[in-house]
């Protein structure tokens, strides 16, 4: 990416700066994934609960 910018006349950008601007997206992806995993955990817990109560009735 820096090589591409250098070829096009932008020489002030260092790889580390691009890495720094990756942090916001990384945090977003982390929170989105945490949210989806917590919903997955909740649905697994519900399934186990439903299965246990069905077993209990039998």
């Amino acid at each position: 990416m820096t090589a591409f910018l250098h070829e096009n006349g932008i020489t002030t950008v260092e790889p580390l700066t691009i890495g720094l601007w990756s942090i916001p997206t990384a945090l977003c992806a982390l929170f989105i994934h945490l949210f989806r995993l917590s919903r997955l955990d909740a649905s697994i817990a519900r399934e186990i609960h439903a299965w246990q109560s069905a077993e209990g009735k039998r």
Binding site: L5, W21, S22, T25
Partner: peptide
């Protein structure tokens, strides 16, 4: 626009 930010987020 800030080139480092634009290329980073573009790649993502």
């Amino acid at each position: 626009a800030n080139p480092a930010l634009v290329v980073a987020i573009g790649m993502f």
